[in-house]
Design a protein around this nucleic acid. Structure first.
Lengths: 157, 157
DNA sequence: TATGAAAAGATAATCCC
DNA sequence: GGGATTATCTTTTCATA
């Protein structure tokens, strides 16, 4: 929450979120440090949780056709227990890649990676509508990807 | 597009998209290979583009309040040139983290990382509505993140 | 053609200044 | 924070099946 990060830390973080494969000495050079202080900063940034994890981004087109679909769920009011089961169920569905509650706490938006529309049709009835509290699903299918980044804007960049 | 990947390749890819920080020998152990064939496979998977890139996922909560907002853009019909300028403009707006066209080619959905609603209000008028072809913006603000993964489901997992 | 073992090279991690 | 050192991992080579 607090920002005890200086300009160098931010430059390092931004490089990491663009390419986490670079060596610490390469990053050091780019931000104007030598290897060991740069490595220490990277280490600290990881320990303090600024870097949550490091992942490989796969090319989903290589695995055949697929499409992202945004599903807006109309929810009934849930008990704490029901809500917990709902959230837990979402974690277990690999095709649900993201989920957010919307203002009002009664609706949820999902980003679903579907192989095709027919699969999604089935998924809606067999999975989504059977989750605790889900009353209705309104879906928006995407056609093509214009931009997809995992980079968050950092201060003073 | 084609899948000349065997079960080991898929296991390697899945580990990489969960944690790309692991050493090749650690991955080798997990998938049941020795270090060098595993390393060669990883190399090949990168060369052939199955792995697009490797990134650090930052904890956006560490940088103060922020919220994702989905913006659905109503577009007028664009010439190829206008469309190119529109897509290019999206790439330059750091707060737009994702963009997809919707069925019909006339609408677009954006995922925007906003510091707060007031910022977004201004952003809508000053940036979005000034992009080529944008006629209207309908926004859905998210409240809390229930799930956010960058892992795509792989066959036979 | 693919694997494993092992050497060579690069990088990460630690030390001291 | 920088420079030098050691530990560890990556990458190449080579022998083998």
């Amino acid at each position: 929450m607090s920002n005890d990060l200086d300009r160098l830390d931010l430059k390092i973080l931004d490089r990491l979120q663009i390419d986490a494969g670079e060596s610490s000495s390469a990053i050091a050079e780019h931000v104007g440090l030598s290897q060991s202080p740069c490595w220490r900063r990277i280490q600290r940034l990881k320990e303090e949780g600024y870097v949550k994890r490091q992942v490989a981004i796969l090319d989903r087109e290589k695995f055949g056709e697929s499409m992202y679909i945004f599903a807006q769920l109309k929810m009934s009011r849930l008990s704490d227990d029901q809500r917990e089961r709902f959230v837990s169920a979402l974690q277990d569905i690999d095709e649900v890649t993201e989920a957010y509650t919307l203002f009002g706490e009664m609706d949820v938006i999902l980003k679903v990676l579907a192989p095709n529309i027919a699969w999604y049709q089935n998924f809606t009835f067999r999975r989504l509508l059977r989750l605790p509290g889900v009353e209705d699903v309104r879906s928006t299918a995407t056609l093509s990807e214009l931009k997809c980044t995992h980079r968050i804007p950092l201060p003073s960049n």
